[in-house]
Design a protein around this nucleic acid. Sequence first.
DNA 1: CAAAGCCCTGCAATCGATTACAACATCTAG
DNA 2: CTAGATGTTGTAATCGATTGCAGGGCTTTG
Lengths: 342, 342
Amino acid sequence: MATEVPTIQDVARVAGVSTATVSRALSNPERVSDSARRKVLEAVEKTGYVVNEAARNLRQQRANAIGVIAPDLSNPFFSSIIAGIEQIAGPNGFGVLVTESSMTGQGAFDHASLLASARVDGFVVLDGQMDLSRLRNRSKGLSQVPVVSACEYPEDSPAPSVTVDNAGGAEKAVRHLVDLGHTKIGHITGPRGNILTTTRLEGFRAALQSMGLPVHEDFILPGDFNLEAGKLAAEIWRTMEDRPTAMFCASDQQAFGFISQLSRQGFSVPEDVSVIGFDDIEVSGFFVPALTTISQPRLELGRMAARMLLDRINGQSHREGLHPQLDVTLVVRDSTAAPVAA
Amino acid sequence: MATEVPTIQDVARVAGVSTATVSRALSNPERVSDSARRKVLEAVEKTGYVVNEAARNLRQQRANAIGVIAPDLSNPFFSSIIAGIEQIAGPNGFGVLVTESSMTGQGAFDHASLLASARVDGFVVLDGQMDLSRLRNRSKGLSQVPVVSACEYPEDSPAPSVTVDNAGGAEKAVRHLVDLGHTKIGHITGPRGNILTTTRLEGFRAALQSMGLPVHEDFILPGDFNLEAGKLAAEIWRTMEDRPTAMFCASDQQAFGFISQLSRQGFSVPEDVSVIGFDDIEVSGFFVPALTTISQPRLELGRMAARMLLDRINGQSHREGLHPQLDVTLVVRDSTAAPVAA
DNA sequence: CAAAGCCCTGCAATCGATTACAACATCTAG
DNA sequence: CTAGATGTTGTAATCGATTGCAGGGCTTTG
């Protein structure tokens, strides 16, 4: 029963043709005669032949796979992007190799080289913290590999990237709150040093100013994108003497943490404070209260990144420095409302 | 600048040794002399050499990679398991290839063969719906590949699997509700035909009976694991004349959908109805109200599956039919309470 | 001092596919 | 009828690493 795995030689023997013909019949069907093609297909069926990717990759000098370096796989935000990458890569015959960059203390280095060389034809990097230039300088082998950053991108990277309009999203959030009548608007930021953090914060500041509102530095609370950060921020908010009546959160998860902790303390949203998030992850519409947020096209982000990477792999080199920016949209739900009169 | 990728030949030339020595110096350092090893390492450094995985895989007849077939990447439940797989696979020198089985109408077939042959050394299958035996019969090539099912497993599969104690979890959930004083307990099931659905449902029934409570068939609502299903179930609950005072939901997401829709309709949890979920995904502790649920060791699930698969790949064949079952725990939070007196 | 054993190294075969090239058959046009 | 074009096929080189085998040098032992 446990027979050998059939090779192209076996197929050729069964079909009564050469291996060259088998190979051609499978990859360029129009280049062989009808009769040969039929014989080959029958033989493939009979033997249960599946091409050996390692041999093909070696010969063709390409892996038919792309690597994805994600900071945190269990974050639903990233997994959606990965799903988008899959949607493009799969049908194009590319496998998707996923690694979590947080895995080693060293950063993603060992994993990157694990994936390196003939293993993948390129990378999509979802981790803005990762030092791409170091990665590329690591070895000649790696420096050849095309890279596309998605979502977060290192500021100085020459690699193409696809992002969303973070500043614009922040502005839409602020405008929504202002339209509702808020004037005391706070912000919980993302983690320090993250490009998303800074662009959203800048967008927040710029929006307030353009609407003629002052920026209270006290209303800007340092945070992170996760649930815990929102909880911590809620504790700070509670202790403030002069509280903002609305908070713009850097992520939906953060907003959940914030709301959760507040309601545990007897406050309610949006009565005591309006909350708006960023991301529009799936559960946001089902939170209590349903979360008003800035919706990112996460799947499209992944799809576009994959498309760009595949193009580069296939030699249609976009000029370096291509940085498309996708639009975000405001989704109004139940966590924002007009402020109650003081 | 855009030089060729260095090969082992280049390293050998620079180091002044044969390729055999380079290969040995890198994979069996103790088998070469100190001086040779030093020369090789220097040459590697100088050239920036990275091994070509395709060539190695071809020669060694192994891919140093495992495939994961998941039903839905954007579901945080699965991505946690994948993270666990990664944690074991990575340090052992294995890459992780992820595919979404929902991707093709045909099921995961094309993807499976995409991954097949020398591309991966084995699979972890997270999709219980997938017809494993068909997959294995597809070709001789595939039938050789070791497979481990995790979480969901096809009932008749001979493949080893790692699961959690779903029936036990259901029982813990019911017991908790009974302890609180509930007697009218309902259940929203998972999707039809899913093994998790049936074991949890059976566990639910068995638990009620063992505690001397009747099973109201009307209180068992058909559902799915997602948010929408919970919302639908809430609509049914609302219209019931004799309503259960507590609901055991087949997943946390479902519970969120249920609670969300109820509160939108002016009901509140746990005052009007207690709700308990299953999974304990990250956000559950931050929901409003924080969700009482059955916690699954998701990371450990992935880690164990990866360990079992790696063992099989390395020839330490567990006897076929090994099916470890991990324990689940009850996590009491705020979505359950004693029923209000009628 | 010779035989046996060990360590280290290099030669060359090998993994399984793809593909350049050449050979051959068949067809077309002059 | 023949030169040339066209279409189909097979031969064999090739991708880059690993590894069985054999040989050379050195040490140990009788």
